[in-house]
Nucleic acid binder design. Structure first.
Lengths: 152, 152
DNA sequence: CTCGCATGGTTTTAAGTTGAAACCGCTGTG
DNA sequence: CACAGCGGTTTCAACTTAAAACCATGCGAG
């Protein structure tokens, strides 16, 4: 199940999260969880994936602390799957994905769901990355650097 | 190669981009491309993945317009793989992934690479999502909604 | 020209993963 | 008790992945 990393034992800051998420299904499960879905059957119906796969993905999300189980609030004897804080931390990633999708995967006139402000129903702004001084920065304005402290 | 979507023919705004990216390797290739890598061999060395897989992933990224090939600038007879505008649009997603990784996958004292402002070397700020009125909003402040126009 | 080597792939083949469907087990209901 | 709904696990065929071997092209050296 875990991806083999023959190349380097400790994965980089991008690969490590990817490995924890597991695969695309997991991300869609998380998205549905943000929408309020909680039950096995709800996820299965929403995503239309095989039960064994859903089962495996949920287990993986639990194992990585992205979701956790709680006893059903409505008294039914089943458990529910909810996002942990770590899982909720994936919100910006999902927004980034959605905005990228809006930009490049829909015709201008093609209808698609919008992420809106609950308070007033207006669409949210685009995600933007800012430097310390508040400038909006793009990929070309940034670089990755090892921290001052020696790595390892 | 393409993921089967038996459930619904046209995929949602999150699934569609995921399908285009393909898999984790592709995202790591894109990340490396942002770092300036361009050549087949560079990607292969950096990622340590099998050549056939790299070949397939690059082909998929090309097919989805995320990368394109150009003739090598340095006069060598080979081609190079560079990000298209669509590919560069993935920058916020990679930043989101990296920041999530920083938050939850590294011990506080564990060294890891930092995304910094090229201008002054200072780390960038956190990505934040804002509403139209400028408020920073989280998952609980937003919802998805169909556009006013009838879908489809 | 020929040899050897670097680059950039493709082919081959075994091992692992996926997914549909069947099955299982529990709980509440008639 | 039978039965239906929910939440899974098991089974098994089909597909994907990955490592390694192989192939092709374009050099530069002898």
């Amino acid at each position: 199940m875990a991806k083999r990393v023959s190349h380097r034992d400790s994965m980089c800051g991008v690969a490590r999260p990817l490995d924890a998420i597991g695969d695309w299904w997991s991300l869609l499960i998380v998205r549905d969880a943000f929408e309020g879905l909680r039950r096995f059957g709800e996820f299965q119906k929403s995503l239309g994936l095989a039960k064994n796969i859903l089962s495996a993905r949920l287990r993986n999300l639990l194992a990585h602390g992205i979701m956790e189980t709680v006893l059903a609030a409505d008294g039914s004897p089943y458990q529910e799957y909810v996002l942990t804080e770590k899982g909720r931390g994936l919100f910006p990633l999902l927004v980034a994905l959605r905005q990228w999708g809006e930009d490049f995967f829909f015709e201008p006139d093609e209808a698609h769901v919008l992420l809106v402000d609950r308070k007033n129903g207006l669409p949210v702004r685009r995600l933007e990355l800012r430097a310390q001084d508040g400038r909006v920065v793009g990929a070309e304005d940034t670089m990755v650097r090892l921290p001052s402290i020696a790595p390892e």
